[in-house]
Write a protein that binds this DNA or RNA. Structure first.
Lengths: 148, 148
DNA sequence: AGCAGGTAGTCAAGCAGCTTGACCATCTAT
DNA sequence: ATAGATGGTCAAGCTGCTTGACTACCTGCT
């Protein structure tokens, strides 16, 4: 594959990602969850399964644990999560979503579906599923680095 | 398309975009262009065709013109671009890439090709081209908002 | 021609989110 | 039992962005 093709692919991917992020963020706000940034959303996806420690969150977000701790402060203060004692480690605290946190997560899913809808109209559902499958095969499992 | 599917697609897209950004950035650095951030790369793509004014750059990046001006200061100081008088407007200045700026752009293309290579090995060139075509059809023309 | 309002760019101050560094409490391995 | 590693927080500092204010220049209307 030529360099210029690779660059065109990269540019398109980044442009789509940027717009998607914006649309999901706007959709979440429109549903009444304010004062959140996209980084909080990335945190929610890590917290959702069964909670996580600050350090785990820091690894997932690709930031220092101080930054992660500060982010947790914010979402706790706003009522989206709470710190509970960790069941197996007295040093650690398990950060889990509150009911409001779950509601926000569901709102994000709705917003994502809304953001993707124009793609379905343009490409068809079959093509969008194909896109999803290809992306999922090349998606890394490492940290989500939002800082670019 | 279900909400959960849309969310999975979004997550995969953002993860891939994040990793791609990181790889291109690393590749550019490995080729000897240091002290640059991904945002500079987005600026270069706007400057490349025939230069741009600070205000045009600001719109493209989705930031204030003050921030864009500051970014131009940086890449001028580092020798990647220069400010020339605008041919038709004495208020404006046309920011154009220097030879070093072009060299950096070529390095970014090489890095992009390198970053995409594993995808080609995994999916095949035909599939990656299909991915590119789909993404280009849904890519917006608006500002690249790197701040998420 | 001349003036009013809009636009390009810069200077200055402030802020938000991140980093590095230091520290204590607790866990784990020897 | 003790030494080192790990989870978390406090504090200070930096960087890239924002808002606000200003000058120089362009454009359209009278």
């Amino acid at each position: 594959m030529q360099n210029s093709e690779a660059m065109a692919l990269s540019a398109a991917l980044l442009a789509v990602a940027g717009e998607l992020t914006q649309r999901i963020h706007d959709g979440v706000e429109a549903r009444g969850f304010e004062g959140l940034r996209p980084a909080h959303g990335f945190a929610f996806t890590r917290l959702a399964p069964g909670g996580a420690t600050v350090t785990e969150l820091a690894v997932h977000l690709g930031v220092t644990k101080q930054a992660a701790s500060q982010l947790v402060d914010e979402i706790v203060r706003k009522g989206y999560a709470e710190r509970r004692p960790h069941p197996h480690d007295a040093r650690a605290r398990l950060v889990v979503l509150t009911e409001q946190g779950w509601a926000c997560t569901r709102a994000a899913e709705e917003a994502a579906a809304e953001a993707v809808r124009p793609w379905v109209e343009l490409l068809g559902e079959r093509e969008v599923r194909a896109l999803r499958d290809r992306l999922m095969r090349i998606a890394p499992s490492g940290p989500i680095k939002p800082n670019w």
